[in-house]
Design a protein around this nucleic acid. Structure first.
Lengths: 116, 116
DNA sequence: TGATTATATGCAAATGTTTTCATATTCACA
DNA sequence: TGTGAATATGAAAACATTTGCATATAATCA
């Protein structure tokens, strides 16, 4: 396993290392969504969503379909969901300590709830 | 799935978004390794390895065991390998276009081979 | 104790990512 | 054609990560 391949894989995981992108992918589990729908679901502004989508596109994680002025996004390979599910399993097994998560949740409760 | 959880998961994937950290984890598949062994395997300098290990520690991905002045690292939850294997599968299915990988490999061939 | 080996940490420079705001493009329809 | 709606892009500021170097700690051994 050489350096180039590891760099390549690192770039792939980097795609998944932003909360908005994970949220987008989660919403796409149910099927394709338009930019506007995602914008509403994530409560983030248009430009932010569009730029995160651009990243997902550049990483070939999503496909697009245009209908009039509306662009629909969908995940290219549903196996990405399997990956996310394995990650979820790892959480459930407390690789990341329960404590740390609780602290973050408490922290978020104290601060006003923020959109993406 | 709220914002805090997505942030938490994003941080987790971020752990895997660096080539040196992925290389370290791959080497740990075979069992625990000392910092020095990893240093040799990755051809990176001591401080760099140590700081990447510090990240993996802070993310609770690895455990350490001290023996004299030597510190041995091992992965805490082997399920992380399952995650990496699913990622590999996704590559094999060409989620990431074969073309892009070839370009990067060619690029790396042109430039002199670099350590981590 | 002093020297040596193994590992960790602090800090500043270099680099990369994210956000925000403004503007551009594309399509539809009056 | 002109206007509005949906999406994309550019660029600068804010922020985070990575690297390299110097130094610190901790254990071993002469």
């Amino acid at each position: 396993m050489n350096q180039v391949v590891h760099q390549f894989k690192a770039d792939f995981f980097k795609m998944l290392s932003h909360p908005a992108r994970l949220a987008i992918l989660d919403h796409l589990r149910a099927g394709e969504k338009s930019v506007n729908e995602l914008q509403v679901l994530l409560e983030a502004d248009q430009s932010t969503i569009s730029q995160q989508l651009a990243k997902l596109r550049s990483g070939n994680l999503v496909d697009t379909r245009k209908e009039g002025t509306t662009v629909y996004y969908s995940v290219r390979d549903p196996m990405i969901f399997q990956l996310m599910d394995v990650a979820k399993e790892i959480f459930n097994r407390r690789l990341i300590s329960h404590q740390a998560l609780l602290e973050q949740v408490a922290e978020a409760g104290r601060a006003s709830e923020q959109p993406i």
